[in-house]
Design a protein around this nucleic acid. Structure first.
Lengths: 185, 185
DNA sequence: CGTAGCATGTAAGTTGTTACATGATTCG
DNA sequence: CGAATCATGTAACAACTTACATGCTACG
C-alpha cells in the first residue's frame, strides 16, 4: 500500500483557508498549527511543486515586477482530494519528545542535567502559552462554526501547554527532593 | 552540520537498561516509551547493525540452536556516546497529530465526521490510560532514583492522556451544540 | 551601507516506513 | 494442523532536513 503524503494534504488544507505563497504558507503553518504539526520549508516547497504538476494547486497571482511572489490557490481537484482525505480516519499521532526519552534512559548521576532541561522546558512552555493566549483574542470569524474549529485546536494547544507546565513543576519537585522525604526538617 | 540520528541514542539508552534482541527492543520501546517516542522495526534493525559496525553495541549472547535470537548489549564506547548525548540540550519535541490538523482545515460540513473521529480518539485514550494505570503498579526498583525517573515518564503519559480525554469531551460538547447556545430550550 | 526580513529555489543526503521473505515454536 | 507469536532480515522507496545560493526591500 502506497503511503500517503500527509504534507500534501496539510498544504491543500491551508490553501483552502486562503491562497498563499510558499513562504507565507510556512509562516502561517508555524503560527497556527506549529505546536502539533511540524513541517520544514524544503519539504513544503517540493510538495507544492508536485501538487502544481498534479493540478491540485495552481498559481493564482504572480508578481513579476520587483520582489518575486508566487501565490498558490487550491483547485477543484485539490478540493476533492482534500475532502476525500478528511473523510478517512486520522492516523495515530506521532510524537518524538527527546526530553522524555532522555529522562527514561537517564541514571541517577544525570539528574542535575535533567533538572536544568526541565527548567528550560518549563520556561519555554510558559512563553508559548503566553503567545497562544494572545492569539486567542484575535481569531476571526466570531461565532461561526469555522471559528469554533480553530478555537478547538487553540484550546488543545492551551491544554497541552498547561499540562506540560504542571508536569515540569511536578518533575522538578520530585527531583529536587534531596533523598526520600525523610530529611531532617 | 551533520544531523544526529536520535534513533541511535534511543537504542543505546534502552540497551543500557538491559541487553535485548532487536525484537525485544521494539516491543520494550513500544510498551515503555511508545506514547512519546515512535520507531519502526525496519529502522531500529538497520540502526542496530550500524551501531554494531561502529562498536557501540555488541552481541552479548547468540542462540544458534533452535529459534534464532541475537541479544545485543551496549559497549563502553556506546555508553560514552550516550552520556555525551544526554548532556546536550534536548531538541524541541516533534509532533504530528492528524486529528488536530483535520479539525483545523475542516469546514462546517465536515463536522459530523469530526465528531466520529473525536469519539474514537476519546475511547482509544481511555483504553490507553487504563493500560498505563496497570503498568504503574509494576514498576520495579521501588524507591530508587531510577524508578523515580521512570515514574516521571509514566506520569507524563497519564497527564497527557487525561488532557486528551478532557479536550475530546470539550470538543464533542462544543460540536454537538446544535447552533450557538441560543437554542429554544 | 549593512543587516534583517521577505522570497524562491535546489541538491545532497539522511531518516524512516512498508512490504515482503523466511523459519521456529507454542497452543488450541 | 493452522494460527499466533517469536524472531531476523532486506530492498525499495518515500519522507524529510539541512545547507546553500540568490536577490530584493525596508529600516536604522
Amino acid at each position: 500500500m502506497k503511503r500517503i503524503n500527509t504534507t500534501h494534504f496539510a498544504i491543500l488544507g491551508l490553501l483552502r483557508i486562503k491562497p498563499m505563497s510558499a513562504y507565507e504558507l510556512v509562516k502561517f503553518s508555524k503560527e497556527s498549527i506549529g505546536l502539533f504539526w511540524n513541517e520544514s520549508y524544503g519539504h513544503i516547497h517540493k510538495s507544492i511543486k508536485q501538487l502544481e504538476a498534479e493540478g491540485s494547486v495552481s498559481v493564482v497571482e504572480e508578481a513579476e515586477t520587483g520582489r518575486r511572489k508566487i501565490v498558490y490557490g487550491i483547485t477543484g481537484q485539490g478540493c476533492d482530494q482534500l475532502d476525500a482525505w478528511l473523510a478517512q480516519k486520522p492516523e495515530e499521532s506521532v510524537m518524538r519528545n527527546e526530553l522524555l526519552m532522555k529522562i527514561f534512559v537517564s541514571e541517577e548521576r544525570h539528574i542535575p542535567q535533567l533538572v536544568a532541561f526541565l527548567e528550560e522546558e518549563l520556561e519555554a512552555s510558559r512563553q508559548y502559552a503566553a503567545i497562544l493566549a494572545g492569539i486567542k483574542g484575535s481569531v476571526p470569524g466570531g461565532e461561526s462554526k469555522q471559528a469554533q474549529l480553530w478555537l478547538l485546536t487553540l484550546d488543545y494547544g492551551e491544554r497541552y501547554l498547561r499540562m506540560t507546565i504542571e508536569w515540569c513543576q511536578h518533575a522538578l519537585e520530585t527531583l529536587n527532593q534531596p533523598h526520600r522525604g525523610r530529611t531532617n526538617d
